[in-house]
Amino acid sequence: MSISSTIEPSSYAEAFRHDCWIKAMQAELQALQSNDTWTLTLLPPHKTVIGCRWIYKIKYRADGSIERYKARLVAKGYTQMEGLDYLDTFSLVAKPTTVRLLLALAALNQWHL
């Protein structure tokens, strides 16, 4: 019954009307600050600001009751242009062969993992 009676807001204007979503947004901002996820800096010349938006989700327990209200602040990365806002992208990926090699070295040298 609780799943059908509550709705997730699709905008900040909708969420701002309810205390539960305000608390969820405050918790998200507090988490970002305590994890040193962001720092306010001056914008370099000839650069544009990347926007952000709030995403709202209701987390439910197995019995269908509401566990918590979750708000996430996400960057609108799709507004960036390659060569203007960034030069290249990469993600660190550990290949299985590299992991096996390191584990083999650790075993041979009796290193503590």
Rank of each mutant, 00 (worst) to 15 (best):
L101Y: 05
W38P: 00
R100A: 14
L32Q: 11
M25S: 01
D88V: 09
Y60Q: 09
L32S: 06
G64W: 05
L42K: 08
I58A: 12
V99Y: 05
Q110D: 03
T48Q: 13
A94Q: 07
T98H: 13
R53N: 09
D19N: 14
I58Q: 13
K95A: 14
M25R: 09
K70D: 04
A27Q: 07
W54G: 02
A106F: 03
W21H: 06
I7V: 13
I58Y: 14
K47G: 01
R72S: 08
I55Q: 07
L102H: 10
H112I: 06
I58D: 13
I66T: 09
E14V: 03
L92K: 08
I55K: 11
R53Q: 11
I50C: 10
R100T: 11
R68E: 12
P45N: 09
I7D: 09
T98E: 15
T89Y: 08
K76Q: 13
Q110W: 00
L105D: 01
F16V: 15
D19K: 15
W54D: 02
K76N: 11
K95M: 13
A106I: 02
A106P: 01
W111F: 08
F90K: 10
K70T: 02
D88H: 14
S4A: 10
W54H: 03
V49G: 00
R72V: 04
Y86C: 03
I22K: 15
P9C: 07
L42E: 14
A31R: 15
T97E: 15
W111I: 02
A75H: 02
S5D: 12
Y12L: 15
M1F: 10
A13W: 00
T89L: 12
K95W: 11
L43K: 10
T37L: 00
L84S: 06
N35M: 03
G51A: 09
T48F: 03
S34T: 15
K95V: 10
A107I: 05
S91T: 11
A13R: 08
K57M: 10
A31W: 07
T41L: 07
S11E: 08
L29R: 08
L29H: 00
P44K: 01
A15P: 01
P44L: 03
C20F: 04
S5T: 15
A62M: 12
V99D: 04
L84F: 02
A27M: 00
H46I: 10
S11H: 08
N35I: 02
A107H: 06
L87H: 14
F16G: 00
A13F: 01
A27I: 00
Q26L: 06
A13H: 04
L32K: 10
A13I: 07
E82K: 10
Y12P: 00
A106W: 07
S34C: 07
R100L: 12
K47A: 03
L101N: 05
A13P: 00
A106K: 04
T39K: 13
A27T: 04
K70S: 03
I50W: 04
A15R: 01
K59I: 12
D36K: 10
T79K: 06
L32P: 03
M1C: 12
P9E: 07
T39C: 04
A15S: 01
M1N: 12
I50A: 09
L73S: 04
